[in-house]
């Protein structure tokens, strides 16, 4: 899952080397924190948050496949 988020984010930003995903394992849900370089936040959020929403939807589907619950947080 971490790899999926990293892969998507790195394909969308100008500074792929600054993409960092950390995993915070909770009781029922895993929270993934996506950090991107300065100036790249807009690339992963998109117009009206469309890209962020799309990444979240894909992550949710992938988590469902794995029988888990995942939440994605995007930070700069």
């Amino acid at each position: 899952m971490k790899e999926l988020i990293e892969h998507i984010a790195r394909s969308l930003v100008d500074h792929p080397e600054q993409v960092v995903v950390t995993e915070v394992v909770g009781e029922k849900t895993i929270v993934y924190e996506l950090r991107v370089g300065p100036g790249d936040l807009g690339k992963v959020i998109g117009r009206e948050g469309r890209t962020a929403k799309s990444i979240r939807t894909i992550v949710t589907a992938a988590a469902m496949k794995a029988g888990k619950r995942a939440v994605l947080e995007i930070l700069e």
Partner: peptide
């Protein structure tokens, strides 16, 4: 057997996939 998962409710996941692939392709 995974079509439903990839499509999502009213095609929401499919739409998300399409958006991300479009963005990636554009880049």
């Amino acid at each position: 057997g995974m079509d439903g998962l990839l499509i999502g409710k009213s095609g929401a996941t499919l739409q998300a996939l399409q958006h991300i692939v479009s963005r990636m392709a554009y880049r």
